[in-house]
Design a protein around this nucleic acid. Structure first.
Lengths: 144, 144
DNA sequence: CTCATTGTAATAACATGATTTACAATGAGT
DNA sequence: ACTCATTGTAAATCATGTTATTACAATGAG
Protein backbone atom coordinates (compact mmCIF):
# COMPACT_ATOMS: atom_id res chain seq x y z
CA UNK A 1 0.00 0.00 0.00
CA UNK A 2 1.47 3.30 -1.02
CA UNK A 3 0.45 6.72 -2.22
CA UNK A 4 -0.29 7.16 -5.91
CA UNK A 5 1.77 8.80 -8.60
CA UNK A 6 0.10 12.14 -8.10
CA UNK A 7 2.54 13.96 -5.88
CA UNK A 8 5.68 12.63 -7.59
CA UNK A 9 4.21 13.58 -10.96
CA UNK A 10 3.45 17.08 -9.70
CA UNK A 11 7.02 17.38 -8.43
CA UNK A 12 8.45 16.29 -11.74
CA UNK A 13 6.24 18.76 -13.59
CA UNK A 14 7.42 21.63 -11.40
CA UNK A 15 11.05 20.56 -11.71
CA UNK A 16 10.76 20.52 -15.49
CA UNK A 17 9.11 23.92 -15.57
CA UNK A 18 11.90 25.32 -13.41
CA UNK A 19 14.67 23.53 -15.27
CA UNK A 20 13.52 24.41 -18.78
CA UNK A 21 12.29 27.93 -18.07
CA UNK A 22 13.21 30.10 -21.05
CA UNK A 23 14.65 27.15 -22.96
CA UNK A 24 11.60 25.15 -24.00
CA UNK A 25 7.91 25.92 -23.92
CA UNK A 26 6.65 23.53 -21.25
CA UNK A 27 3.43 22.30 -22.83
CA UNK A 28 1.50 19.35 -21.45
CA UNK A 29 2.84 17.20 -24.27
CA UNK A 30 6.42 18.22 -23.53
CA UNK A 31 6.01 17.52 -19.82
CA UNK A 32 4.23 14.25 -20.55
CA UNK A 33 7.26 13.01 -22.45
CA UNK A 34 9.57 13.69 -19.51
CA UNK A 35 7.34 11.91 -17.03
CA UNK A 36 6.27 9.32 -19.60
CA UNK A 37 2.62 9.69 -18.74
CA UNK A 38 -0.52 10.77 -20.56
CA UNK A 39 -0.77 14.50 -21.35
CA UNK A 40 -4.29 14.63 -19.90
CA UNK A 41 -2.88 13.69 -16.48
CA UNK A 42 -0.39 16.53 -16.84
CA UNK A 43 -3.12 19.01 -17.71
CA UNK A 44 -5.23 17.89 -14.78
CA UNK A 45 -2.29 18.10 -12.40
CA UNK A 46 -1.31 21.51 -13.75
CA UNK A 47 -4.85 22.61 -13.04
CA UNK A 48 -4.46 21.57 -9.40
CA UNK A 49 -1.10 23.30 -9.13
CA UNK A 50 -2.63 26.42 -10.65
CA UNK A 51 -5.51 26.33 -8.16
CA UNK A 52 -2.90 26.09 -5.39
CA UNK A 53 -1.19 29.23 -6.68
CA UNK A 54 2.04 27.50 -7.66
CA UNK A 55 1.96 27.90 -11.43
CA UNK A 56 0.20 29.84 -14.11
CA UNK A 57 -0.78 28.12 -17.31
CA UNK A 58 -1.19 29.92 -20.64
CA UNK A 59 -4.43 28.59 -22.04
CA UNK A 60 -4.50 28.72 -25.80
CA UNK A 61 -0.87 29.54 -26.41
CA UNK A 62 0.42 26.82 -24.11
CA UNK A 63 3.17 26.45 -21.55
CA UNK A 64 3.40 26.90 -17.79
CA UNK A 65 5.45 29.06 -15.47
CA UNK A 66 6.20 29.04 -11.76
CA UNK A 67 4.48 31.77 -9.79
CA UNK A 68 6.92 31.51 -6.87
CA UNK A 69 10.63 30.93 -6.54
CA UNK A 70 11.68 27.24 -6.30
CA UNK A 71 12.99 27.81 -2.77
CA UNK A 72 9.57 29.12 -1.76
CA UNK A 73 7.72 26.05 -3.02
CA UNK A 74 7.61 23.21 -0.50
CA UNK A 75 6.70 19.57 -0.89
CA UNK A 76 3.91 20.21 1.56
CA UNK A 77 2.24 22.70 -0.77
CA UNK A 78 2.63 20.30 -3.67
CA UNK A 79 1.22 17.42 -1.63
CA UNK A 80 -1.75 19.46 -0.47
CA UNK A 81 -2.36 20.67 -4.01
CA UNK A 82 -2.84 17.19 -5.43
CA UNK A 83 -4.03 15.08 -2.50
CA UNK A 84 -7.25 15.20 -0.52
CA UNK A 85 -7.12 16.47 3.05
CA UNK A 86 -7.94 13.18 4.76
CA UNK A 87 -6.70 10.79 7.41
CA UNK A 88 -3.54 8.81 6.77
CA UNK A 89 -5.37 5.50 7.22
CA UNK A 90 -8.84 4.16 6.63
CA UNK A 91 -10.35 3.31 10.00
CA UNK A 92 -13.36 1.04 9.88
CA UNK A 93 -16.41 3.28 9.68
CA UNK A 94 -18.93 0.93 11.30
CA UNK A 95 -17.24 -0.86 14.18
CA UNK A 96 -19.45 -2.63 16.70
CA UNK A 97 -20.89 0.03 19.07
CA UNK A 98 -21.51 -2.65 21.69
CA UNK A 99 -17.79 -3.39 21.95
CA UNK A 100 -15.73 -1.07 24.17
CA UNK A 101 -12.89 -1.29 21.69
CA UNK A 102 -15.10 -0.91 18.63
CA UNK A 103 -16.91 2.14 19.89
CA UNK A 104 -13.70 4.05 20.70
CA UNK A 105 -11.20 2.89 18.10
CA UNK A 106 -11.88 5.67 15.63
CA UNK A 107 -11.30 8.45 18.11
CA UNK A 108 -8.36 6.85 19.91
CA UNK A 109 -6.41 5.61 16.92
CA UNK A 110 -7.46 8.60 14.81
CA UNK A 111 -5.95 10.99 17.34
CA UNK A 112 -2.61 9.20 17.35
CA UNK A 113 -2.46 8.94 13.59
CA UNK A 114 -3.34 12.56 12.96
CA UNK A 115 -0.25 13.54 14.95
CA UNK A 116 1.85 11.27 12.75
CA UNK A 117 0.34 12.76 9.62
CA UNK A 118 1.08 16.27 10.83
CA UNK A 119 4.70 15.29 11.39
CA UNK A 120 4.81 14.00 7.85
CA UNK A 121 3.45 17.29 6.56
CA UNK A 122 6.04 19.12 8.66
CA UNK A 123 8.74 17.04 7.01
CA UNK A 124 7.32 17.89 3.60
CA UNK A 125 7.37 21.57 4.53
CA UNK A 126 11.12 21.39 5.03
CA UNK A 127 11.80 20.13 1.51
CA UNK A 128 11.73 22.78 -1.21
CA UNK A 129 11.69 22.58 -4.98
CA UNK A 130 15.08 24.32 -4.88
CA UNK A 131 16.49 21.41 -2.81
CA UNK A 132 15.30 18.94 -5.39
CA UNK A 133 16.56 21.05 -8.31
CA UNK A 134 19.92 21.20 -6.60
CA UNK A 135 19.97 17.42 -6.15
CA UNK A 136 19.03 16.94 -9.78
CA UNK A 137 21.90 19.17 -10.88
CA UNK A 138 24.34 17.38 -8.59
CA UNK A 139 23.22 14.02 -9.92
CA UNK A 140 23.64 15.29 -13.48
CA UNK A 141 27.19 16.48 -12.79
CA UNK A 142 28.17 13.14 -11.29
CA UNK A 143 27.18 11.52 -14.58
CA UNK A 144 30.01 13.65 -16.12
CA UNK B 1 -5.38 8.59 -1.22
CA UNK B 2 -4.84 6.88 2.07
CA UNK B 3 -3.57 3.65 3.54
CA UNK B 4 -5.97 0.71 3.68
CA UNK B 5 -7.82 -0.77 6.62
CA UNK B 6 -5.09 -3.28 7.31
CA UNK B 7 -3.11 -1.62 10.07
CA UNK B 8 -6.16 -0.21 11.89
CA UNK B 9 -7.81 -3.63 11.73
CA UNK B 10 -4.69 -5.26 13.16
CA UNK B 11 -4.64 -2.69 15.96
CA UNK B 12 -8.27 -3.35 16.81
CA UNK B 13 -7.66 -7.10 16.84
CA UNK B 14 -4.77 -6.73 19.26
CA UNK B 15 -6.72 -4.34 21.46
CA UNK B 16 -9.61 -6.80 21.67
CA UNK B 17 -7.29 -9.69 22.50
CA UNK B 18 -5.72 -7.64 25.27
CA UNK B 19 -9.01 -6.25 26.55
CA UNK B 20 -10.89 -9.54 26.61
CA UNK B 21 -8.04 -11.76 27.77
CA UNK B 22 -9.45 -14.31 30.17
CA UNK B 23 -13.01 -13.06 29.67
CA UNK B 24 -13.95 -14.24 26.19
CA UNK B 25 -12.31 -16.63 23.78
CA UNK B 26 -11.15 -14.31 21.00
CA UNK B 27 -12.02 -16.34 17.94
CA UNK B 28 -11.95 -14.88 14.45
CA UNK B 29 -15.74 -14.67 14.50
CA UNK B 30 -15.74 -12.84 17.82
CA UNK B 31 -13.10 -10.37 16.64
CA UNK B 32 -14.89 -9.94 13.32
CA UNK B 33 -17.99 -8.76 15.13
CA UNK B 34 -16.07 -6.07 16.99
CA UNK B 35 -14.40 -4.76 13.86
CA UNK B 36 -17.48 -5.45 11.75
CA UNK B 37 -15.47 -7.11 9.03
CA UNK B 38 -15.31 -10.57 7.48
CA UNK B 39 -13.81 -13.32 9.69
CA UNK B 40 -11.51 -14.42 6.87
CA UNK B 41 -9.83 -11.02 6.94
CA UNK B 42 -9.34 -11.46 10.67
CA UNK B 43 -7.80 -14.89 10.22
CA UNK B 44 -5.47 -13.61 7.53
CA UNK B 45 -4.43 -10.64 9.65
CA UNK B 46 -3.92 -12.86 12.69
CA UNK B 47 -1.65 -14.99 10.51
CA UNK B 48 0.47 -11.93 9.72
CA UNK B 49 0.59 -10.92 13.38
CA UNK B 50 1.59 -14.46 14.31
CA UNK B 51 4.36 -14.44 11.72
CA UNK B 52 5.58 -11.18 13.26
CA UNK B 53 5.74 -12.81 16.68
CA UNK B 54 3.03 -10.68 18.25
CA UNK B 55 0.34 -13.29 18.87
CA UNK B 56 -0.13 -17.01 19.04
CA UNK B 57 -3.27 -18.54 17.60
CA UNK B 58 -4.74 -21.82 18.79
CA UNK B 59 -5.52 -23.73 15.61
CA UNK B 60 -8.37 -26.14 16.07
CA UNK B 61 -9.49 -25.03 19.50
CA UNK B 62 -9.61 -21.35 18.54
CA UNK B 63 -8.70 -18.08 20.15
CA UNK B 64 -5.62 -15.85 20.14
CA UNK B 65 -3.27 -14.52 22.82
CA UNK B 66 -0.62 -11.81 22.93
CA UNK B 67 2.92 -13.08 23.04
CA UNK B 68 4.30 -9.79 24.39
CA UNK B 69 3.08 -7.23 26.90
CA UNK B 70 0.94 -4.43 25.43
CA UNK B 71 3.59 -1.87 26.36
CA UNK B 72 6.16 -3.84 24.38
CA UNK B 73 4.08 -3.89 21.20
CA UNK B 74 4.52 -0.79 19.05
CA UNK B 75 2.50 0.54 16.16
CA UNK B 76 5.63 0.16 14.07
CA UNK B 77 5.70 -3.59 14.60
CA UNK B 78 2.02 -3.81 13.77
CA UNK B 79 2.47 -1.68 10.66
CA UNK B 80 5.40 -3.75 9.46
CA UNK B 81 3.50 -6.95 10.15
CA UNK B 82 0.66 -6.12 7.80
CA UNK B 83 2.15 -3.75 5.22
CA UNK B 84 4.75 -4.36 2.56
CA UNK B 85 8.17 -2.79 3.01
CA UNK B 86 7.97 -0.33 0.15
CA UNK B 87 8.34 3.34 -0.69
CA UNK B 88 5.80 5.79 0.62
CA UNK B 89 4.92 6.95 -2.89
CA UNK B 90 4.80 5.45 -6.34
CA UNK B 91 7.42 7.18 -8.45
CA UNK B 92 7.07 6.74 -12.18
CA UNK B 93 9.10 3.69 -13.15
CA UNK B 94 9.86 4.64 -16.72
CA UNK B 95 10.58 8.36 -16.87
CA UNK B 96 12.28 9.71 -19.96
CA UNK B 97 16.01 8.88 -19.73
CA UNK B 98 16.78 11.70 -22.18
CA UNK B 99 15.40 14.29 -19.78
CA UNK B 100 17.77 15.48 -17.03
CA UNK B 101 14.82 15.63 -14.67
CA UNK B 102 13.33 12.32 -15.78
CA UNK B 103 16.54 10.35 -15.44
CA UNK B 104 17.22 11.53 -11.88
CA UNK B 105 13.78 11.95 -10.35
CA UNK B 106 13.58 8.48 -8.85
CA UNK B 107 16.85 8.75 -6.98
CA UNK B 108 16.46 12.39 -5.92
CA UNK B 109 12.84 12.30 -4.80
CA UNK B 110 13.16 8.74 -3.53
CA UNK B 111 15.96 9.77 -1.17
CA UNK B 112 13.95 12.59 0.31
CA UNK B 113 10.82 10.52 0.71
CA UNK B 114 12.58 7.59 2.34
CA UNK B 115 13.72 9.95 5.11
CA UNK B 116 10.11 11.02 5.60
CA UNK B 117 8.95 7.43 5.74
CA UNK B 118 11.59 6.59 8.33
CA UNK B 119 10.36 9.47 10.45
CA UNK B 120 6.85 8.08 10.18
CA UNK B 121 8.06 4.67 11.32
CA UNK B 122 9.89 6.33 14.21
CA UNK B 123 6.63 7.96 15.22
CA UNK B 124 4.89 4.61 15.06
CA UNK B 125 7.60 3.11 17.26
CA UNK B 126 6.73 5.57 20.00
CA UNK B 127 3.09 4.47 20.18
CA UNK B 128 2.44 1.26 22.08
CA UNK B 129 -0.58 -0.97 22.39
CA UNK B 130 -0.62 -0.05 26.09
CA UNK B 131 -1.03 3.64 25.15
CA UNK B 132 -4.02 2.80 23.00
CA UNK B 133 -5.54 0.51 25.64
CA UNK B 134 -5.16 3.29 28.13
CA UNK B 135 -6.88 5.76 25.79
CA UNK B 136 -9.69 3.27 25.20
CA UNK B 137 -10.22 2.89 28.94
CA UNK B 138 -10.18 6.65 29.47
CA UNK B 139 -12.69 7.13 26.68
CA UNK B 140 -14.91 4.42 28.21
CA UNK B 141 -14.82 6.11 31.61
CA UNK B 142 -15.79 9.46 30.16
CA UNK B 143 -18.91 7.81 28.78
CA UNK B 144 -19.77 7.17 32.47
C1' DC C 1 -14.52 -39.50 17.06
C1' DT C 2 -16.72 -35.11 17.15
C1' DC C 3 -17.03 -30.42 16.29
C1' DA C 4 -15.97 -25.67 16.50
C1' DT C 5 -12.32 -23.35 14.68
C1' DT C 6 -8.15 -22.17 11.95
C1' DG C 7 -5.57 -21.82 7.59
C1' DT C 8 -5.90 -21.12 2.93
C1' DA C 9 -7.33 -20.96 -1.80
C1' DA C 10 -10.26 -19.27 -5.21
C1' DT C 11 -13.54 -16.20 -6.84
C1' DA C 12 -16.45 -12.28 -7.01
C1' DA C 13 -17.64 -7.59 -6.00
C1' DC C 14 -16.16 -3.12 -5.60
C1' DA C 15 -13.36 1.07 -5.54
C1' DT C 16 -9.84 3.75 -7.33
C1' DG C 17 -6.20 5.19 -10.23
C1' DA C 18 -4.43 5.70 -14.81
C1' DT C 19 -5.20 5.69 -19.88
C1' DT C 20 -7.28 7.14 -23.82
C1' DT C 21 -10.40 9.50 -26.95
C1' DA C 22 -12.84 13.43 -28.05
C1' DC C 23 -14.00 18.11 -28.42
C1' DA C 24 -15.25 22.86 -27.09
C1' DA C 25 -12.73 27.01 -25.43
C1' DT C 26 -8.64 29.84 -25.51
C1' DG C 27 -5.63 33.37 -27.32
C1' DA C 28 -1.14 34.69 -29.68
C1' DG C 29 0.30 35.36 -34.35
C1' DT C 30 -0.80 36.45 -38.94
C1' DA D 1 -11.28 38.00 -38.18
C1' DC D 2 -9.01 33.58 -39.04
C1' DT D 3 -5.86 29.91 -37.98
C1' DC D 4 -3.94 26.56 -35.18
C1' DA D 5 -1.52 24.60 -31.43
C1' DT D 6 -2.82 24.11 -26.94
C1' DT D 7 -5.60 23.98 -22.70
C1' DG D 8 -9.62 22.44 -19.94
C1' DT D 9 -12.78 18.96 -19.26
C1' DA D 10 -15.89 15.13 -19.75
C1' DA D 11 -16.64 10.40 -20.61
C1' DA D 12 -15.49 5.71 -21.46
C1' DT D 13 -12.26 2.14 -20.76
C1' DC D 14 -8.62 -0.49 -18.74
C1' DA D 15 -5.77 -2.02 -14.94
C1' DT D 16 -4.91 -2.83 -10.30
C1' DG D 17 -5.68 -3.49 -5.51
C1' DT D 18 -8.70 -4.10 -1.59
C1' DT D 19 -12.45 -6.25 0.64
C1' DA D 20 -16.15 -9.77 0.76
C1' DT D 21 -17.60 -14.28 0.31
C1' DT D 22 -17.72 -19.23 -0.34
C1' DA D 23 -15.68 -23.49 0.34
C1' DC D 24 -13.10 -26.99 2.43
C1' DA D 25 -9.13 -29.54 4.28
C1' DA D 26 -6.40 -29.47 8.61
C1' DT D 27 -6.26 -28.90 13.55
C1' DG D 28 -6.70 -30.38 18.31
C1' DA D 29 -9.21 -30.23 22.88
C1' DG D 30 -12.82 -32.83 24.95
Amino acid sequence: MQFSFRMPVAVQILLCIAKFDGVFKTTSTFLASSVNINPVIIRKTLGQLKAAGLVEVAAGVGGAKLVKEPREITLQEIFNAVEEDEDLFHIQENPNPKCPVGRNIQQVLGNKLSVVKNHMLDDFAKITLADLLNDINTAEESRQ
